[in-house]
Computed example of a mutant assay.
Amino acid sequence: MFKRILVPTDGSDITSKAIDTAIALARVHGAKLYTISVKEPFPYSAVSEMQPTPPQEFFDAQERIASSRVKAVLQAAETAGVACEGHTVEALHPWEAIIEHAQLQNVDLLVMASHGRRGVQALLLGSETQKVLTHCKTPVLIVR
């Protein structure tokens, strides 16, 4: 049924559950797995001398972190015998990057973690998963 599955990763424990689920689904369906980790853009300010980290150092650190997250998914997929392709992208809003990547890769299913925020906290903080659910046309499986 599913041939192309996308699982975003932020390196959190709950995301590892979504990764395990996505890998299991890919194995069952003979699907190709895709993974993405979204990097934060450099927080430019009006007074650049006040930045504690130079831009290139920030970019390098973001790439290192995102690449290590993607690498972990690639290794888990390889161990399970599932074909997987990983990418890192920079975006101000991770949910937009996830939806755009899902469209670019023409995926059949997104597998995402729910961070379990409720009540006022969820309302105030928002949720990347909730935003993906609200705006994405691709089916989304939420793992708790």
Rank of each mutant, 00 (worst) to 15 (best):
7 V>Y: 06
7 V>Q: 09
9 T>W: 00
11 G>V: 09
12 S>L: 01
12 S>K: 02
13 D>V: 09
14 I>E: 05
14 I>S: 08
15 T>Q: 11
18 A>W: 05
19 I>F: 03
20 D>T: 08
21 T>G: 01
21 T>M: 12
22 A>Y: 06
22 A>T: 04
25 L>V: 10
26 A>L: 08
30 G>S: 10
31 A>W: 04
32 K>N: 06
35 T>F: 01
35 T>C: 06
36 I>T: 03
37 S>V: 01
37 S>H: 08
38 V>L: 05
40 E>Q: 13
40 E>R: 14
42 F>Q: 06
42 F>V: 08
44 Y>N: 02
45 S>Q: 13
45 S>Y: 12
45 S>L: 09
46 A>F: 11
46 A>L: 14
47 V>A: 10
48 S>M: 14
49 E>Y: 10
49 E>I: 09
51 Q>T: 04
53 T>K: 11
53 T>E: 15
54 P>S: 11
55 P>M: 11
55 P>C: 07
56 Q>D: 14
57 E>N: 03
57 E>P: 01
58 F>R: 02
62 Q>W: 04
62 Q>R: 10
63 E>I: 02
64 R>C: 02
65 I>H: 04
66 A>S: 14
67 S>W: 00
68 S>E: 15
69 R>L: 00
69 R>Y: 13
70 V>Q: 08
71 K>E: 15
73 V>P: 10
76 A>M: 10
76 A>L: 08
77 A>G: 13
77 A>Y: 03
78 E>Q: 15
79 T>Y: 05
82 V>S: 10
82 V>P: 09
82 V>Q: 13
82 V>T: 14
84 C>E: 04
85 E>W: 05
85 E>F: 09
85 E>I: 08
87 H>M: 11
88 T>I: 14
90 E>D: 05
90 E>L: 02
90 E>M: 13
95 W>T: 01
95 W>F: 15
96 E>R: 09
99 I>Q: 06
99 I>W: 00
100 E>C: 01
101 H>D: 04
104 L>A: 13
104 L>E: 14
106 N>R: 14
106 N>L: 03
111 V>C: 11
114 S>W: 04
114 S>R: 09
115 H>W: 07
118 R>C: 00
118 R>F: 01
119 G>Q: 07
119 G>D: 09
122 A>R: 15
123 L>P: 00
124 L>E: 02
124 L>V: 08
125 L>F: 05
125 L>Y: 02
126 G>Y: 02
127 S>H: 11
127 S>I: 06
128 E>W: 03
130 Q>L: 12
130 Q>S: 11
132 V>W: 07
132 V>R: 10
133 L>Q: 10
134 T>G: 10
134 T>N: 14
135 H>W: 12
139 P>R: 09
140 V>F: 11
144 R>L: 11
